[in-house]
């Protein structure tokens, strides 16, 4: 179709506006020299950013979020890699049921997962804290990571693995010399995106952290006080920039590899 459709184009651009503009208000007001977020802007200041350096609880929450995020993303990406391989590679009995089961945490309202984990955790006599949050995040990130990895592995030519076996490598050698290097961009993308999901996750953390706040929990706590809002804005702006950077990196990685594979297939045909 070579014709243009300017009505649709304008609509699409407006939609982009709808998606982006609200998020952009955070950084704008984070430099505003006032406690209220209203126009006209009062004046430029970086004071809200400087304030972040001195907040002990903020640093603690940041560290907690990083710990939870790293463990959850590494574990869920590992589990997801195995699972993605199984789905992309084999046809087996109960495939659909297993797929549904692993995707389930992604579909079920998060509050239900949170409440269910809360009930069992407390009844087992454990203390709430970062451990149950990490478990919840791992559960929640696995389907995400799996979707990313399946997309990666599905385009994968499994005869490469067979070729490696045929050329005398055993299963482990094949994994490290052939599969892993070729999956790598997908794996890194899955790691980064899972980390971001965990880093930003709120509901599971809300029910399960107890007294060890993660970063979103910290922000939630601050949001109640009007005088602390500007500092939440600054923190939010930093998080948005950080997240955007990581996500763009992940997408770029995913596409770099994917493009190569596609070109490969194109040449083959």
């Amino acid at each position: 179709m070579n014709e243009k459709n300017s009505t649709l184009l304008i609509y699409t651009l407006l939609y982009f506006g709808f998606l982006y503009v609200p998020v952009l208000f955070l950084p704008i007001f984070s430099f505003n020299d006032a406690n209220y977020m209203s126009f006209p802007l009062a004046g430029f200041t970086t004071e809200h950013y400087e304030e972040m350096w001195s907040k002990r609880n903020l640093h603690k929450a940041l560290w907690a979020s990083i710990k939870v995020g790293v463990v959850a993303s590494v574990v869920s990406t590992t589990f997801a890699l195995f699972a993605a391989k199984a789905f992309a590679r084999y046809t087996f009995r109960g495939e659909k049921v297993s797929y549904g089961a692993i995707m389930m945490p992604f579909l079920i309202p998060e509050i239900i997962l949170a409440v269910a984990i809360l009930v069992i955790w407390v009844n087992l006599g454990f203390k709430l804290g970062l451990v149950p949050v990490t478990i919840g995040h791992t559960l929640f990130c696995t389907p995400f990571a799996m979707l990313i990895l399946i997309a990666r592995i599905e385009g994968f030519d499994f005869s490469l693995e067979e070729a490696s076996r045929d050329l005398g490598e055993n299963a482990w050698g094949t994994f490290f010399r052939v599969s892993f290097p070729l999956y790598l961009p997908g794996i890194v993308a899955a790691l980064l995106l899972s980390f971001i999901i965990s880093f930003d996750e709120f509901i599971l953390a809300f029910f399960l952290t107890g007294s060890d706040a993660t970063l979103p929990m910290y922000m939630w706590g601050q949001m109640r006080f009007v005088q602390k809002l500007p500092h939440v804005l600054a923190l939010g702006a930093v998080i948005i920039v950080f997240t955007t950077f990581i996500v763009l990196l992940a997408f770029w990685l995913r596409n770099v590899g994917q493009g190569k594979v596609k070109k490969d297939i194109a040449i083959k045909l």
């Binding site: 195995f82 199984a86 590679r89 089961a101 692993i102 069992i120 791992t138």
Partner: peptide, 28 residues
């Protein structure tokens, strides 16, 4: 058997789902 291979690969994710979702939800 592809079934055996596939479920070996799936077991970590499935066990996670069972322990962290199915069992807690049953308890709930």
């Amino acid at each position: 058997y592809d079934n055996v291979k596939a479920y070996t690969l799936l077991s970590p994710a499935l066990i996670l789902v069972i322990l962290a979702m199915v069992v807690p939800m049953a308890l709930m």
